[in-house]
Design a binder for these strands. Sequence first.
DNA 1: AAATCGACCTGATATAGGTCAACTCAGGGT
DNA 2: ACCCTGAGTTGACCTATATCAGGTCGATTT
Lengths: 251, 251
Amino acid sequence: MDTIVKTIHVGFAKPFGCHSCRMNKLCIPLALGSDELDKLDQLNALVQRKNPLQPRDGVFFSGDPFTSIYAVRSGSIKSFCIDTDGREQVTGFYLPGEIFGWDGLANDHYQNTAIALETTSVCEIPYDQLDKLGSAIPSIKKYVMKLISHELNADQRLIALLAGKSAHQKLASLLLSISDRLVVQGLSPRRLWLPMSRGEISNYLGMTVETVSRALSHFQRNNYLHVNKKDIEILDKQALRSLLISSDDTE
Amino acid sequence: MDTIVKTIHVGFAKPFGCHSCRMNKLCIPLALGSDELDKLDQLNALVQRKNPLQPRDGVFFSGDPFTSIYAVRSGSIKSFCIDTDGREQVTGFYLPGEIFGWDGLANDHYQNTAIALETTSVCEIPYDQLDKLGSAIPSIKKYVMKLISHELNADQRLIALLAGKSAHQKLASLLLSISDRLVVQGLSPRRLWLPMSRGEISNYLGMTVETVSRALSHFQRNNYLHVNKKDIEILDKQALRSLLISSDDTE
DNA sequence: AAATCGACCTGATATAGGTCAACTCAGGGT
DNA sequence: ACCCTGAGTTGACCTATATCAGGTCGATTT
């Protein structure tokens, strides 16, 4: 079944390659320099577009052998690990154009599990092939390093958030981060749809669902946001930003 | 050995190269395979041993252009960043044999500042040279990727700690981590000297100095530890471990 | 040796956020 | 139409940890 899907994929022409991908300005091709088309073709050749995933479908699971990194084409992904006491810890949310799966590099097995939050399609990029391409094309190699390092920086931002910020600050920070990432996709920075549940948000931010819910209500009361379930409209971005720069959390 | 002759021949007087380094089983040379000596020589040629650092001396500062990664030879390093509201956030402690500085890769500038916690010596490994060596020797390249990815995993462990654990659990986890890392160095897992202050511990773990202090006292009262300032003796490692696996924090 | 200083510890009190419980609401299945 | 279930919200209460305010100790200066 799974194999059938695969063979169909390999056999088909690729009508929707990197050339036509909405996300190709965000994804790997950013590394391209002068001889763009040529490189894009090479990339295109190694990227495998996968069947759309349904909500809760997994891309890879903790313990699976590491083979590939993945790019979100549409939809969204959450990654999480199970820590020492069996608790699930969400380690990241990935939106279209973003790349995930690097954590498997350390010991050839994924540490995290990655699942779709909604109907999602991803591109698989086999790591050994990417690596080979990187050896041939320095700009690709450099870009790969930047992608990993970017992930490191994201983790460190999260660490600073978790270690030092109040519940309101954490939530504001997440909302602003998502908003910024929507802008990169060319979407509105004001209207956002949260693909994850309150529970997933609270887990990611190290707090409880109730606190997330109350913080959202609080922001709504203060006209920072309009909240309708997972639909958020940012009414006063400056107010949210100022929560982060001053440690003043009042009002 | 003849290697020393070789390095002298090249023009550098390196009487204490990677060959003789106590940490060479932990550091980059781990990547070495069959033709070890040859590779070690190449590594040795690019590693620059620096003058010993005094406490508080910086290795690199946030904003400096990224040039190199560093290995701790002796002593210890803390890295920290300044977040949006100007607060310092400790992002890592590095012990002998450990490698730091990867965070600069993302945008060619270090995000963190790295300073010595005590009298410390580090080796500088220029990244572009390491990269070249990686291109020539696949096992080196692979090992470099593993090192970065290891850093990613460490950050994710910290995220899980910060997001989900109590003060006692966080502190126990740090102590056990340091203990484990001492073992790797071939030192006793029971006696440990904390090179960082209570304030640095508390900042790293997202809590206050007072809570760190009380937690240490608590562990001492329960005979998990014997605490004498920065000198810690682990009396009941199993008790500390069990704090982490069950969410039961009582007693 | 008196004074100063910084790191650390401890006790009393305050509070942010956790816990528990009740409720609403939107699907989905029968 | 009905119940069920799970997600989200809200309120009342509680507790882990922050905050504030003294302390001790050891090193350094005078």
